[in-house]
Write a protein that binds this DNA or RNA. Structure first.
Lengths: 228, 228
DNA sequence: TCGGGAAAGTTGACGCCGTCAAGACGGGTT
DNA sequence: AACCCGTCTTGACGGCGTCAACTTTCCCGA
C-alpha cells in the first residue's frame, strides 16, 4: 500500500504533527480501509475503527463529522489515487492506442489492488450526497480517460464520437473490475469444473484481450492482429 | 413494477395461500425494494421492512433466516428478472448484431428501472457468500449474453475470442448502468454548466452509440455508418 | 511568563438495529 | 378431540451511530 502512503504524505506535508495522536485522520482512514477489506463496507463500523486506532468511540466525529464523512474522505482519496495512476500511464505511453489499453489495464489493476477504496467510491449511498471535493476528484479521473480518447480521435478519426467513446472506455474498465472480482469469487467457491468454459478465472490476458477488442471499435482501420 | 409482479406470480403458482399473512415472503421483498429505493441498501433495515409489511420485527427471520437471507433472495430475483428480459430480447431479434445492441440497451434500461435490485445484486457483502440459487441465476443471465456472442462468431468471425467478447459485453452493460446513474446524480447536483461537455446527462442515444462503437470491435467488417 | 481559548479527545446517554430464545396461535391430520 | 408443526409475537441482549457535556492539551498574544 506504498502508493497510499505516498499519497497521504503529500496531503500531510506542511501540516506538522497534531496535538494528541499525531495524525488521527490518516490513522482512521488506514484503520477503516483495513476493516473494510476484512468485513466489507456494510459490516464496517465506526466504533471498531476507533478501537483499532486506539481512540474513543466518539473521536472520529471531530475530524469527519459522521460515518459518511469518513467514507466520503476515503472515496475522494480513491479517485485522487486513480487520477495519479492514470496520469502516470499517460506519461509512459506516446501511442494513444497503447495508452488506451494501458489505462484500462491500470484501472483494473488499481481496482483489484485497492478493493476497499473502490467499494466505497461506487457505493454512493454511504457517502455524503453533496461533496465538491469528491465530485472534483471523480471528474478529474474521468478527464484522464477523455484525453486519451481525444488523442485517438486526433490521430485516427476526427469524426469519432468522443463522448460515446469516453463513456465506453470508463464503462468497460469499471465493468471489467467489477466482473473479474465477482467471477473470481464464484470460482473460489466452486473450485471444481464449471458448466461453461466462459467463466474460468479471469487474468491479465483476458483484460488485455477485451481492451484490444474494444479499441478496434474506435479505430476501424486496425486489423484483426495485435498491432504489437 | 409489473414485471416483478408477474415474476412473483410465476414463483408463487401452485403454492396456495399461506397461513396467517397470505404471502409474507413476497410482501417482505416488495417492502424491502421500496425501502431500498428510498434510503439505499446501506440504511435499509429489517425492522422497518417488517413494520411496513405490518408484522413484528422478528417475523422476517422465519422466512429468510437473517438480513442477508432476504437480500440474497432479492438479488436472485434480480438475476432471474434479468434473464427473462434478455431472453425476450433474443426472441425478438434475429440479426445477432441487432440482438447485441438490444441486449445492452435492455440491460441498462433494466438496471435503471430496478435500481434496488441492481444495488443488491452487485453489493456482494450484503448477501450470503455461498448461495447456489444466486450463483445459478447470475450464470444464467450471463449465458444469454454469451449466446449472442456465439451467434456473432458463427455469422461473422469464427476466430472471435468468445470469452473476451462476452466479458466485454457484460462489462460494458454493467459499467454503462453504473456510470449513467452516477453521472445523472452529479448532473442533478450541478444543474448549471459543467466543466466538460463530456458529462452531460446520458440518454438512450448515448447508450446506443456506445454499443454500436463496441460492436465494431467484434465485427471488423462493419463500416463507420449505422447498418440500420 | 502566563492565562485564555480553541482544538482534540473522553465519557455517558439515547434510540435503533439484528439476532436469539421462548411462547402463543391456528389450521390440518389422525 | 388431541396433537403437531408452521407461523408469528414478545421480550431481552449487546452493538451501533450520534449527541451533549466534560476534561485535557496545546498555541498564541498580552
Amino acid at each position: 500500500m506504498a502508493e497510499v502512503d505516498e499519497h497521504r504524505a503529500e496531503q500531510r506535508s506542511g501540516e506538522g504533527r497534531s496535538y494528541h495522536h499525531g495524525d488521527l485522520p490518516n490513522a482512521l482512514r488506514s484503520a477503516a480501509l483495513e476493516l473494510i477489506e476484512e468485513v466489507g463496507p456494510t459490516a464496517f463500523s465506526l466504533r471498531e475503527v476507533a478501537r483499532r486506532a486506539g481512540v474513543s468511540h466518539a473521536a472520529p466525529a471531530h475530524h469527519f463529522g459522521d460515518k459518511a464523512g469518513l467514507l466520503t474522505s476515503i472515496a475522494t482519496e480513491g479517485f485522487e489515487l486513480l487520477s495519479e495512476v492514470m496520469s502516470d500511464v499517460v506519461a509512459a505511453h506516446d501511442d494513444p492506442i497503447e495508452r488506451f489499453v494501458a489505462q484500462g489495464e491500470a484501472y483494473v489493476r488499481m481496482a483489484r489492488t485497492n478493493r476497499a477504496h473502490f467499494a466505497v467510491m461506487w457505493q454512493d449511498d454511504v457517502h455524503h450526497h453533496v461533496d465538491q471535493a469528491l465530485d472534483a476528484a471523480g471528474l478529474g479521473a474521468f478527464h484522464c480517460l477523455v484525453e486519451t480518447i481525444e488523442a485517438i480521435a486526433a490521430a485516427y478519426d476526427p469524426d469519432l464520437d468522443v463522448r460515446a467513446a469516453s463513456m465506453m472506455s470508463w464503462s468497460l474498465s469499471q465493468g471489467l473490475s467489477e466482473l473479474t472480482d465477482a467471477i473470481d469469487s464464484v470460482d473460489e467457491k466452486y473450485a471444481d469444473d464449471l458448466p461453461s468454459a466462459a467463466t474460468a478465472t479471469p487474468d491479465d490476458e483476458l483484460v488485455e484481450a477485451v481492451l484490444r477488442l474494444s479499441i478496434r471499435g474506435l479505430v476501424p482501420g486496425l486489423g484483426t492482429d495485435d498491432p504489437a
